[in-house]
């Protein structure tokens, strides 16, 4: 056959007769796509800058502490360890989650891709679980990496590394569990907020606003107790005495600090005393209260997320 103009030879359509793995494969695909989206893989450089920057920022404290520990020794006063790591990176983690998590839900709705997903062998719940677990995985990788760097740093800094491991191996399961607690929290809330707006930016601003603004609000409502302790940047207090509202109820108001909620659970997992803001107040409450509060603040947004997608109109 002679083609006058060198046309591309059409191979003809071939039917697909390979394996079809149905719903399980669909779930995996949603998960993998979620992880890739979060990290900006398969996208332009613009999408990689933010996660990269935030990843480095969360890793940095672990590296710095390891280096300091290797110089001044493990027992240096005030050097944070595994117990204090999540508290230290919590602000960074919030910024990371608030900015990246909406990437996994908002564009799908804004671009209309969601309607292509839901006609495939995939339910709304499959989709949400896939997205949620994708961002959870990314967050877990992030915080575990930091803790691992810290652990390796401490082992190397120890005079007798072998003994250090024997004495401190329990920290590993502790930080694994605490990391899960923190990651579930910082995954669920931003995703729930993302289900209310198609604009990623507004979701991010709302989440960060919620976490940042709750700090001074809690500060005001717990003034009395805090004035003895670690008042942020203050010169000490002029009023030492307790007040009717903030005196008795301060320990309850301390729960209002959203960012601190998983940290209180973290503090229960580690034996070390936490001297951070509001932790001393929450300690006055029975353990079950902060745990119940944590569960409410993860299950609640989780339910809201599911409920929002139940009623989605395509």
């Amino acid at each position: 056959m002679i083609e006058a103009q060198g046309e591309v030879f059409d191979l003809g359509y071939k039917h697909y007769d390979g394996p079809r793995e149905g719903r399980m494969r669909a779930r995996k695909a949603i998960w993998i796509n979620g992880v890739r989206t979060a990290l900006g893989i398969g996208r332009g450089w613009g999408s990689k800058v933010l996660p990269g920057l935030l990843f480095v920022a969360v890793m940095l404290p672990a590296l710095v502490i390891s280096l300091v520990a290797s110089q001044v020794g493990l027992l240096a006063q005030g050097l944070p360890g595994h117990a204090g790591y999540y508290q230290m990176v919590s602000t960074l983690l919030i910024i990371f989650s608030a900015i990246i998590a909406p990437e996994l839900l908002c564009p799908d709705r804004r671009d209309g891709v969601i309607s292509l997903y839901l006609v495939r062998p995939l339910t709304t719940t499959d989709y949400l679980v896939g997205r949620w677990s994708a961002f959870l995985s990314v967050t877990l990788a992030l915080v575990y990496l930091g803790q691992t760097v810290l652990f390796i740093g401490f082992v190397l800094a120890a005079d007798e590394p072998g003994n250090y491991i024997l004495d401190n191996w329990l920290n590993v399961p502790r930080f694994l569990l605490a990391g899960l607690v923190v990651a579930i929290f910082t995954t669920t809330i931003p995703l729930a907020v993302s289900s209310f707006t198609n604009r990623r930016a507004y979701a991010a601003a709302f989440v960060i606003g919620l976490f940042i603004i709750s700090v001074p609000i809690t500060g005001v409502l717990t003034i009395c107790e805090n004035s003895h302790g670690t008042q942020q940047g203050g010169l000490g207090s002029e009023s030492g005495q307790c007040k009717p509202l903030t005196g008795k109820a301060a320990k309850w108001f301390a729960l209002l600090n959203v960012g601190g909620v998983p940290i209180h659970v973290n503090d229960m997992i580690f034996p070390e005393e936490n001297t951070s803001e509001f932790a001393n107040l929450v300690d006055e409450l029975p353990d079950v209260v902060p745990v119940a509060w944590y569960l409410l603040l993860t299950a609640g947004p989780g339910f809201v997320l599911w409920w929002r997608y139940r009623r989605i109109r395509i």
Binding site: G18, P19, R20, E21, A26, A29, I32, L116, Y117, R120
Partner: peptide
């Protein structure tokens, strides 16, 4: 990606 969501490895 869409092929995978339809169940194809």
């Amino acid at each position: 990606h869409m092929a995978q969501v339809s169940g194809i490895p």
